Amino acid sequence: MKMTHYKARNKVITIGEVYMMATSKGHFRVTQPMTLDFSVKGCEMNVAASLSSLGQDVSHFTIISDDTLGETVLDFMKHRSINTQYVQKTTIPLCICLVEKSVDKAPVKVANSITKSPLETFDWSAVSWKNVFQDAGWLFWSASFVRLQDAAGRLAEILQSAQADTISVVTDLSLVNPGITDFSRDIVTSLIPYSSVVIANVENINMLLETDFGDDTLAFTAACTKLNELYPNITSVFDKVCNGSRCYGRGWVNKRYIQTPEIDIGCIVDDEGTSESFAAGLLYILRFHEEQHALNFAIAAFALQHTVKGDYNEATVNEIIAVLQASRRFQ
């Protein structure tokens, strides 16, 4: 298969919102006396943390509140070895999202404190993008960004500049911040033309294109072909598929279908952070290897993340490779 030639620069840039999630401890309703667990959240930041765990140099662009909560977020990112030099501060309070835990479903939103996104006040003009792009090869954003109408216009300019500098723009349409963002087709449509790599399932593509493709292999290929026809800059689409406790990755690269070996996940502990681990796995390997290798690594990271709790990858490169090698032995 012909390999897509991506820019041979090491650094990855992620752009996205961060917030605090308050979760009821145990399975209490918020109307009951209870204890709350607080955690730092943000899809793109989770991808950055996953990449950092793999040893990748990554910088996250966001804005935090100029108070104790903001400092907590900043300390968290520094602890995860994420470059925070482009993190700005604002007087707008950090969003707090209150959720209830469910036994067999993702946390259910009860309420959030958001009134205006801090990213809408990010001073993009204060950033020397020429310097930022100098040693960067990849820029990542996701569907969690798409509710930010005011910020989306400025992001479009940044993505255009990145594209002109031959930086590979990676978009994940499968990621949203639960309780914070919904899929906004209009905003995604304005940003997706600058992407060369897209992470999406058929449902995501159908929402974007207003189509009704099925979910089998032929339908996935047809959906990706249609996406490429409308947005020719998109040359690669990657997806992860879970069937109970088994999963595999599939992709559409330079008009050809690729697929990974199926992996037996085993005992599923949690599914939070799995999509972020998949995205990070792709970005990590695509820097130096062809797409099939990247997809193989990404689906192994995806599978492994199901066996632990947490919002981002904690596994080492060798641990992920071991999962992939084991899956091949049992094919």
Results as ranks from 00 to 15, higher is better:
5 H>M: 07
6 Y>L: 15
7 K>Q: 09
19 Y>W: 14
21 M>C: 05
25 K>V: 04
29 R>N: 04
31 T>Q: 11
33 P>V: 06
33 P>R: 10
35 T>D: 09
37 D>I: 12
39 S>A: 10
40 V>Q: 03
40 V>S: 07
41 K>L: 08
46 N>W: 15
48 A>N: 07
49 A>M: 05
50 S>F: 08
52 S>T: 00
55 G>H: 12
57 D>G: 06
65 S>G: 01
65 S>D: 00
65 S>Y: 00
68 T>K: 12
70 G>N: 11
73 V>Q: 11
73 V>A: 05
74 L>Q: 02
75 D>T: 12
75 D>F: 15
80 R>P: 00
80 R>D: 01
81 S>M: 13
86 Y>K: 02
86 Y>I: 00
87 V>H: 10
87 V>P: 10
91 T>K: 07
93 P>Y: 08
94 L>R: 04
96 I>M: 10
97 C>G: 01
98 L>Q: 04
98 L>R: 06
102 S>Y: 13
103 V>G: 01
103 V>N: 02
104 D>P: 05
104 D>M: 14
107 P>V: 04
107 P>M: 02
108 V>E: 08
108 V>K: 11
108 V>T: 07
109 K>S: 13
116 K>Y: 09
117 S>F: 13
118 P>Y: 06
120 E>Y: 11
120 E>A: 07
123 D>T: 00
126 A>H: 10
126 A>Y: 13
134 Q>F: 15
134 Q>W: 14
135 D>K: 11
138 W>P: 01
139 L>N: 09
143 A>D: 01
144 S>E: 01
144 S>I: 03
146 V>C: 15
150 D>Y: 14
150 D>G: 04
152 A>S: 15
156 A>I: 01
158 I>A: 05
158 I>V: 02
160 Q>K: 15
161 S>C: 11
164 A>Q: 14
165 D>I: 08
168 S>N: 02
178 P>T: 00
181 T>H: 09
181 T>V: 05
181 T>I: 02
185 R>M: 00
186 D>Y: 13
186 D>G: 06
187 I>S: 02
187 I>R: 00
190 S>G: 14
198 V>E: 03
205 I>C: 00
205 I>S: 00
206 N>M: 04
207 M>R: 10
210 E>R: 12
210 E>C: 06
212 D>F: 14
213 F>C: 02
218 L>G: 05
222 A>H: 13
224 C>D: 09
232 P>H: 13
233 N>A: 09
233 N>D: 10
233 N>H: 15
234 I>S: 02
235 T>V: 14
236 S>H: 14
238 F>Y: 15
238 F>N: 05
241 V>R: 12
242 C>P: 05
242 C>G: 10
245 S>I: 11
245 S>Q: 12
247 C>F: 14
250 R>V: 12
252 W>S: 09
252 W>H: 12
257 Y>M: 10
257 Y>I: 11
259 Q>F: 12
260 T>N: 10
265 I>Q: 03
265 I>M: 03
268 I>W: 07
268 I>M: 01
273 G>K: 08
273 G>R: 08
274 T>R: 07
281 G>C: 03
282 L>P: 04
284 Y>W: 14
284 Y>F: 15
285 I>H: 10
294 A>P: 10
298 A>F: 03
299 I>A: 07
303 A>D: 07
305 Q>D: 06
306 H>V: 01
312 Y>H: 10
314 E>T: 00
316 T>E: 08
320 I>D: 04
327 S>W: 11
329 R>I: 08
331 Q>H: 08
